[in-house]
Simulated scan of single mutants.
Amino acid sequence: MSVALTTAPIPNSTRQRPLRVMVVDDSVVIRGLISRWIEAEPDMVVVASLRTGLEAVNQLERADPDIALLDIEMPELDGISALPRLLAKKRDLIVIMASTLTRRNAEVSFKALSLGASDYIPKPESTRASGAAEIFHHDLIQKIRSLGGKVRRTAPAPAPAPARHATVVPLLAPGVERAREAQLRLQPVPAEPPQPVRHAFSTQAPRALLIGSSTGGPQALMTLVADLGPVIDRFPVLITQHMPPTFTTILAEHLARSSRRPAREAIDGEVVKPGRIYLAPGGRHMRVVRHGAEVAIALDDGPPVNFCKPAVDPLFTSAIDVWQSGVLALVLTGMGSDGMRGGKAIVAAGGSVIAQDEATSVVWGMPGAAANAGICAAVLPLNQIAPKLVRVFSGDRS
């Protein structure tokens, strides 16, 4: 006697479907340039190239994008007005706001983040300047790919394909069947992926808090500093957020309001004091140096580090010479791995590193790199980071 068992077909390819991108910009030159860049990537496709926010709202269902690149200044319906209407139609749409580097556009971009945009990208004043165009190209593709990673992870698994054929298997006698079941029960269960190694907190009291962040960072930082008053009042807080000029000026103002403490872009040569938040200005790396008994800010116009300027690693590594083992570094949401090498150096010098967890990160690139390197004393959701920092700076070393 026999029974027919169906077998699933072997998939022809394990490639994921490309990310579907909608480009919305009133400049035909910009739309064409961005569309060519996206179409050149094997994991992306342009599903719509549109001139106004109104066209984007009207064609959203037909195009069904995963990601919308949305200009701020457009006729008929601008980006900030189109944003809530797009998200009302598709709640999980990832929106990247695009704007030139003006104070007004920076303020609008921050408003867009509060309304549900996932990120922003500054457009160069002219695409004729090769350096500016290359940076814009690199940053745009990286943002689309990094933010699109969550789309792929949360997409439902495809339904099993119909069987190609049936295989005839002999029906086993009861005794043989029981032996086979026993053998199957003895098969090893696949192990869960190993968890990142945790490094113990430093036994030395921290003397400064250093923070690095990128994509999703502005929202995370404003949430964090609102509950960080007891730390800010007693210790200096230095932040590097991947962000261009003008945008960092606006971010510092937002941080001051959220923390109810002084916060501003750092000034070259100024003395670092407790009770203040120092933000690396866009376009310049921020380091700290010792001048006798005092610690001062040192800004430089060197080349990008990890494709970023400002970058986190220069701040992290410079702090070791100043505070030795008294450095506590925090790596928040962001794409790439900036902060991981500096974090390694901090831990090697006796300091500590904390990272934001994957579930609460917009992109788990930077904190994920630090966590997977085994240098973190804790990997925490965003709402648990401020309470933990308050405890650590108050003497808790667990």
Rank of each mutant, 00 (worst) to 15 (best):
residue 2 S to C: 06
residue 3 V to A: 14
residue 9 P to D: 09
residue 12 N to I: 06
residue 14 T to Q: 15
residue 22 M to E: 08
residue 25 D to H: 05
residue 26 D to F: 05
residue 32 G to R: 13
residue 32 G to T: 11
residue 33 L to C: 12
residue 34 I to A: 12
residue 36 R to P: 02
residue 36 R to W: 00
residue 45 V to P: 06
residue 45 V to L: 09
residue 51 R to T: 00
residue 56 A to E: 06
residue 57 V to G: 08
residue 64 D to K: 10
residue 70 L to K: 00
residue 74 M to P: 07
residue 84 P to Q: 10
residue 103 R to M: 14
residue 105 N to I: 00
residue 112 A to P: 02
residue 112 A to W: 03
residue 114 S to N: 14
residue 120 Y to K: 00
residue 125 E to M: 12
residue 131 G to S: 11
residue 137 H to W: 05
residue 139 D to I: 01
residue 141 I to Q: 09
residue 145 R to D: 11
residue 150 K to P: 00
residue 161 A to C: 08
residue 165 H to M: 09
residue 170 P to M: 10
residue 170 P to Y: 08
residue 176 V to I: 11
residue 183 Q to V: 10
residue 188 P to L: 08
residue 191 A to R: 12
residue 194 P to G: 10
residue 199 H to A: 15
residue 203 T to C: 03
residue 204 Q to K: 12
residue 205 A to D: 14
residue 206 P to K: 07
residue 210 L to V: 04
residue 212 G to E: 08
residue 216 G to L: 12
residue 220 A to R: 00
residue 223 T to S: 15
residue 231 V to T: 07
residue 242 H to F: 07
residue 243 M to S: 04
residue 245 P to N: 11
residue 249 T to F: 12
residue 256 A to N: 01
residue 263 A to C: 07
residue 275 G to T: 05
residue 287 R to C: 06
residue 290 R to N: 06
residue 293 A to Q: 12
residue 295 V to N: 09
residue 296 A to S: 11
residue 299 L to F: 06
residue 303 P to D: 15
residue 306 N to W: 03
residue 309 K to Y: 04
residue 311 A to D: 02
residue 315 L to Y: 06
residue 317 T to R: 15
residue 318 S to Q: 02
residue 326 G to A: 08
residue 327 V to S: 07
residue 334 G to L: 04
residue 336 G to Y: 03
residue 342 G to F: 02
residue 351 G to A: 05
residue 356 Q to Y: 08
residue 363 V to S: 14
residue 373 A to R: 06
residue 382 L to Y: 08
residue 387 P to A: 13
residue 393 F to E: 05
residue 394 S to E: 14
